[in-house]
Design a binder for these strands. Structure first.
Lengths: 129, 129
DNA sequence: AGCCCTTTTTACAAACTTTTTACAGGTTGA
DNA sequence: TCAACCTGTAAAAAGTTTGTAAAAAGGGCT
């Protein structure tokens, strides 16, 4: 089972908006009345994003929570998984999953108001050369 | 006696759909008016799946309930039994017994919708008009 | 024992998932 | 602008799980 099943996430309210429904207990995701078939990692990744809808989740945090990777690990698997999620989200992809350059990603509920991007002048973590 | 007879399962309603009938008291299974001859393990396995029709049953759970195996035991006997059940289910095999990759199996009633079962759920977040 | 049926294991094939690789394209700050 | 990063993407490679046939092992019976 994926990293995310470590704790007990029963009693977690399902997410629902105009197009997307996500039931964290049944691990079922429905997009416009059609079941979204997700692999485990895809599900884990989407779950974290949706559970923190509206929040920016740093790459580090995603790599930690979904993959158990620390910052020392360099991989592109997160990008690839985001791509596959976007593909499965169809036309809503970019509306739902935003890229926050230099930081990470953010899931936005469908009709969420789009504020101006908080301009992250500096990366959260200083990267020494 | 099989693992499944440990508790008392009298008063269990038979399962019935368009093609398949399963009487848990008589331990009789009928497919399209023909009696299905099942061995004990095959019956036990099918019974658990049918009693939880629509639910995904993890491999672990099946190996525990039918074989009494814990997670430390590595065996392919479940796969082999699923195969034999599918064979006996004939053309309906894949319709009835779904493989949930990486998790387990699920029995689906014959005309069950192949996707998420709609159930009343509250939105996780308020959506303002 | 020997027979017959059931169950488990073995070994390999097939299907599926995840990660890496390689490069294209985009973004930022000096 | 431009060099230095970051992210997007397709495809290959690697890893894992399941399907399948056949052999081996187990059990009951006479």
């Amino acid at each position: 089972m994926g990293m995310l099943q470590a704790g007990n996430n029963h009693e977690v309210m399902p997410y629902r908006d105009e197009h997307l429904t996500m039931d964290f207990n049944q691990q079922a995701v429905v997009l416009d009345s059609e079941r979204m078939v997700l692999t485990r990692k895809e599900y884990d990744l989407l779950a974290i994003l949706v559970l923190h809808a509206g929040e920016i989740i740093p790459r580090d945090a995603l790599l930690m929570q979904v993959w158990g990777y620390g910052i020392e690990i360099r991989t592109r698997t997160l990008d690839v998984h985001v791509r596959r999620l976007r593909k499965k989200l169809g036309g809503y992809a970019d509306q739902y999953i935003e890229t926050i350059f230099g930081i990470g990603y953010r899931f936005q509920p469908f009709h969420a108001p789009r504020f101006f991007q908080p301009q992250p002048m500096k990366p959260a973590i200083a990267i020494s050369a």
